[in-house]
Design a binder for these strands. Sequence first.
DNA 1: TTTTACCCTTAAACTAGTTTAAGAAATTAA
DNA 2: TTAATTTCTTAAACTAGTTTAAGGGTAAAA
Lengths: 194, 194
Amino acid sequence: MKAKPLIEHFETYLPFEEAEISLIESRISRRKLKRREYIMTTGDICRHYTFVVKGVLRLYGIDPTGKEHNILFAAENDWIADITSFHDTKPGKSNIQTIEPSEIIQIAQQDLYHLYINIPKLDRIFKVITEEKYVELQNRVFQNISSTAQQRYSYFYEKYPHLASRLPNTQIASYLGITPEFLSMIRKEIILGK
Amino acid sequence: MKAKPLIEHFETYLPFEEAEISLIESRISRRKLKRREYIMTTGDICRHYTFVVKGVLRLYGIDPTGKEHNILFAAENDWIADITSFHDTKPGKSNIQTIEPSEIIQIAQQDLYHLYINIPKLDRIFKVITEEKYVELQNRVFQNISSTAQQRYSYFYEKYPHLASRLPNTQIASYLGITPEFLSMIRKEIILGK
DNA sequence: TTTTACCCTTAAACTAGTTTAAGAAATTAA
DNA sequence: TTAATTTCTTAAACTAGTTTAAGGGTAAAA
């Protein structure tokens, strides 16, 4: 059953019946991606919610000078989408790309709306998921406005050890809002026990 | 009807019937607050979702050195709550305080859960509200990691002109993650057309 | 109406983070 | 297995933002 990892994810929130599972199964697609493959680039309309079965993806924006900035990472059992673009069905500003070879499950807009109508508890589940993600982002904003780069790195390292050890430092630096050079310095200082 | 501003807010998402409105009316409380009054301080459990009828409130955190950092503002027709604390019914780290004399509508945890069960579309509405707020926060994170303080100030000024003109600069500086002194410099440079 | 508290500004010295450049180490492709 | 590319590191010169301190303006409280 291709939907299995997704159902297991949903069932960490609420239980599902067979009929519901079959309906979900019929409305998703699952596929494999190579390293550095894109599922969305600037100007595309984001037409899917993407659930990560295996691997890591990043969502990044590009500033007026052309530099990339990582807005979020999504690894196993996490979601990724350009919500603004998805919601309004209009061209988005983001890019979504694999960092490792990955496997994903996607739900298209129409299918998701169909599922919301037929399985109302999905409204509840996505409400809770979005609240959880909102809280994470709020913590990140607090870090950004209140901490030094070193503190932000330590926080990231403690909170997402599986990501911190898995991602190239350039990607982490981009996420933290600093240069890779400065991250290198920070890491040296942390090792020296500063 | 004390719930009127709240119902009008909900009806920007979906229509409501009389019975539903009465149920909501019976499950909320409305009150007035003085300037600088707190509805939550660090260590409290956040037991309400608060809707702002009139005025402005801020939610702020305190860093290890004791400094305050504004995480968000909420003015008319906006929501404010320490979601982490509310969700898990555990002591929160935030403080929520009025900046101006304000009027609010509050929904207590139990009442909100009761409303979710009896009016399922509220799950849908709060899902959408949370998604909207998530997107706003994501844009703010992008600003924080990709822009200078001057660009962040300009963005804030354009996106929230009603707040920018209404709030003391010290509060705006705290929200932007810079010192009031540096904000003062930035404003001078902007006026000089830099 | 006077005082107090708050809010904003300016400027000089300082610190955190960036940029540029060059080379070493690790991965990936051929 | 080697070549090519990406990633990481170090260091010096630079720029963005903070700190400290002092003073002026304005709103609120007594």
